[in-house]
Nucleic acid binder design. Structure first.
Length: 422
RNA sequence: GGAGAGUUGGCAGAGUGGUCGAUUGCGGCGGUCUUGAAAACCGUUGUACCGAGAGGUACCGGGGGUUCGAAUCCCUCACUCUCCGCCA
């Protein structure tokens, strides 16, 4: 959520920034500024009436104490008119607040200066390409065929027991999952991220904190009996650790990681894009989350990119990094880099990681702040990234490391799998 | 699931209708003393918002109510703890 003060002060810059997302925010911002002014006027008036009422109440108390009951009764009548005005002002203030919040919820984050304008994924820029390529002297098979042949993943069994998008992993397929999770967590640990095992369901407040609610409600599974939501990513519980927190000084750099299954209802996709492991309702992911002083955000994002690069290099995969254009950058993000690995068999790039900086957008909703040197509190910056999401990594490993002898496990992973080939 | 007790400032813990944003202790910060530290003593120490400022408003788990006036009374919801039951 954007800060109202920023809208007041930097209206033109926000309008320019949001143009990169193909959004003309002029009307919304004008409405916000107008409503904010009305709100402040009403609020000032309300507070002065409240002050007067407080004063009268004290005087009445004093009169009773001195035994001047009749004077006190007379003073009481004075308050009724003021109270009526107070009540109507209270309602005004509340309705302005509600309208302002509603409008603020509709505005996405302002893209970073590095973000280029653009409509959709076709306008994303490739900013890095790894120097590895995968070549085959035979026709490579798609991962769903490989998985079936080696009995690694059973999609039909998932349909039977749960439904589409909930596969069973079995045998070496299950061990490969476990190996990847352990590998990713160990690498995150080496990079200084503290490991957490968070709850997999969260309450409503946490959903609001990271911005899944109120808008993207349909994306999450909702346990209505208890009003809990299944997490769509570990970002939600990990970032919400710091909801309503004021860090005591400017010396902080918080690095968290966690492995969780992720649950996404994700309606509306079908066909080849969702075949096999490409899109699931439940999948595994190791997430990294950072909470940073604004001055360190750019640096932190760079470190996250290097970290993910390192993972993909160790897995010996061909990949590239995209800087998302305005139109493709997520609602809460100011700047997002996507990692894609090449799938030789599917002849397409698969997104395996997304690293974003949210600047104050999440922190504002989370009320996550730090005390500056001047003792005033300021909003922190939050960042997060996948390091990494498993299903597409598994797809890429199976497809790109297939040999006539089977699937070759990259060296870095062998200590974790305990086998060299599938 | 049943019964009971709770929820107050960083922590502990007072406060049952007015002078309570809140006693006190611990912790934190500043100072005195000390070569330095500890102890002792003195002072200070929540958050947010409105206001140019003076100042003001709100917050004692959340929401609502009673009252001129609520941390304090009433209703409601959430959570925590204890005992019993059930259970990995």
């Amino acid at each position: 959520m954007l800060e109202i003060g920023r809208i007041r002060n930097e209206k033109e810059a926000i309008i320019e920034g949001l143009k990169k997302r193909n959004i003309d925010a002029t009307t919304t911002l004008d409405q916000l500024i107008e409503k904010d002014a009305s709100w402040r006027a009403a609020k000032t008036e309300l507070e002065s009436i409240a002050a007067e009422l407080n004063k009268l109440a004290k005087e009445i108390g004093q009169l009773f104490k001195e035994g001047k009951a009749s004077e006190a009764e007379a003073a009481k009548t004075q308050t009724s008119e003021l109270k009526a005005t107070e009540n109507s002002l209270k309602q005004d203030v509340e309705s302005f607040e509600k309208e302002i919040t509603q409008l603020l919820y509709t505005l996405p984050n302002v893209p970073n200066e590095e973000v280029k304008a653009g409509k959709n994924e076709t306008d994303n820029e490739v900013v890095f390409e790894s120097n590895r390529t995968h070549t085959f002297d035979f026709e490579p098979q798609a991962h769903w065929d490989i998985a079936k042949k080696h009995e690694l993943i059973d999609f039909e069994l998932g349909v039977k027991v749960t439904g589409a998008g909930f596969p069973f992993y079995r045998g070496k397929g299950a061990k490969l999952q476990r190996a990847l999770i352990a590998f990713f967590l160990d690498e995150a640990d080496k990079a200084g991220y503290e490991e957490f095992i968070p709850p997999l369901v969260v309450n409503e407040a946490s959903g609001y904190g990271t911005g899944q609610l109120p808008d993207k409600e349909g994306q999450m599974y909702h346990c209505t009996v208890d009003d809990f939501y299944l997490i769509p990513t570990a970002e939600v519980p990990l970032t919400n650790i710091y909801r309503d927190v004021i860090l005591p000084n400017e010396e902080f750099s918080i690095k968290l990681t966690g492995y969780t299954p992720c649950f996404r209802r994700e309606a509306g996709s079908y066909g080849k894009d969702v075949r096999g492991l490409n899109r699931l309702h439940q999948f595994d992911k190791v997430e990294i989350v950072r909470i940073e002083h604004p001055r360190n955000t750019a640096n932190a994002l760079g470190e996250m990119l290097d970290h993910v690069k390192g993972l993909l290099d160790k897995l010996e995969l061909q990949y590239r990094i995209l800087r998302l254009c305005g139109g493709d950058t997520g609602f809460a993000s100011a700047l997002t880099y996507d990692f894609e690995v090449y799938s030789a068999a599917q002849e397409k790039w698969l997104e395996v990681s997304s690293c974003s900086r949210f600047d104050t957008f999440q922190a504002n909703r989370l009320k996550l702040r730090f005390k500056g040197e001047d003792k005033k509190s300021q909003l922190c910056h939050t960042l997060n990234g996948s390091a990494l999401a498993l299903p597409r990594i598994v797809a890429a490993l199976l497809e790109n490391h297939q040999t006539p002898e089977g699937i070759r496990i990259p060296d870095a992973l062998r200590p974790y799998t305990g086998f060299d080939f599938i």
